[in-house]
């Protein structure tokens, strides 16, 4: 069965009534891959691609508010460097035209690049239910475990909010020039108040923040010493594994390298004299 609502109300309504029986589908870039591999055979679909406005990005009070079905292509055009670059690093143009931020957050792969960039922006995600209404969850509390999130089976992701004018930086290590699943990726956002938000992908069961590393730069600023110390401290924030994509040792070393590299990059941007 196939439901193709055109309004959000209708979509939430179907979602509330049919719950897990109708799998929400947006770009299908995760779901249909699994279907084509024979790993998933959904009984029916709730198509979100025709819901008016769900793919839009709005801008108010210094924050962006993007719809749950905003595509990577749309995000890649925003002047928020880490998010735009993360979105640009997803697949090729055909994937970016279809794949959505909502799908990325629901799949919640440890390698989800959108998730990592949004963590570094300390984003909020809005989860909505037809009758219970909307709840806003800070993204750092949203990832519960390996591909487990705070989203309930009768809710949809309707919005993601994040700040507009933070200084951010992004780096993803892959094995080729484009269309990479990250081996390790890192995003860092610096709020106007000077607080750092360091996020990493592919180094734990979920996309993560790195509180130990953050604490050091939040305390000491971006001196050479603090950067080195923070980068080293990231080892305490991560729990990488060995798999066919990379070894845990390499992932750990790259977490250190990338945190240092991006902190230096942010320092250059801030033009804050090293203390």
């Amino acid at each position: 069965m196939f439901s193709q609502p055109t309004t959000l109300e209708e979509a939430l309504d179907v979602r509330a009534r049919c719950g897990p029986d109708l799998l929400p589908i947006a770009g299908g870039t995760d779901i249909v891959v699994a279907m084509n591999r024979g790993q998933l055979r959904p009984a029916g679909f709730l198509d979100l691609t025709h819901v008016r406005g769900l793919d839009a990005v709005r801008h108010e009070n210094g924050r962006y508010e993007c719809g749950g079905a905003a595509t990577h292509a749309t995000l890649s055009r925003l002047p928020v460097e880490a998010l735009a670059e993360a979105a640009l690093s997803v697949g090729g143009p055909a994937i970016r035209n279809r794949g959505t931020i909502g799908g990325n957050l629901v799949t919640a792969s440890p390698a989800g690049d959108g998730c990592v960039a949004l963590l570094a922006l300390d984003a909020d995600v809005e989860l909505a239910h037809a009758s219970r209404g909307r709840r806003v969850v800070p993204l750092r509390e949203y990832f519960l475990g390996y591909r487990k999130t705070a989203l309930l089976a009768d809710e949809l992701i309707t919005r993601v909010r994040f700040p507009k004018d933070w200084i951010t930086a992004w780096y993803k290590i892959g094995k080729r020039g484009s269309v990479n699943i990250s081996v390790v990726c890192c995003a860092i956002g610096r709020s106007p108040t000077g607080l750092f938000h360091i996020a990493l992908g592919s180094v734990a069961a979920t996309p993560i923040r790195a509180p130990h590393a953050e604490e050091i730069v939040n305390r000491d600023g971006l001196t050479d010493g603090a950067i080195a110390e923070a980068a080293d401290a990231v080892r305490r924030d991560i729990s990488p594994i060995d798999d066919h994509r990379a070894s845990a040792k390499y992932r750990a070393a790259m977490s250190v390298t990338l945190v240092a590299r991006l902190l230096r990059r942010i320092r250059d941007r801030v033009k804050e004299p090293a203390r």
Partner: peptide
């Protein structure tokens, strides 16, 4: 008008 991977788009969509 935009490129998509037709292997990942459901016809019904």
């Amino acid at each position: 008008g935009a490129p998509v991977n037709s292997c990942l788009v459901l016809a019904a969509q």
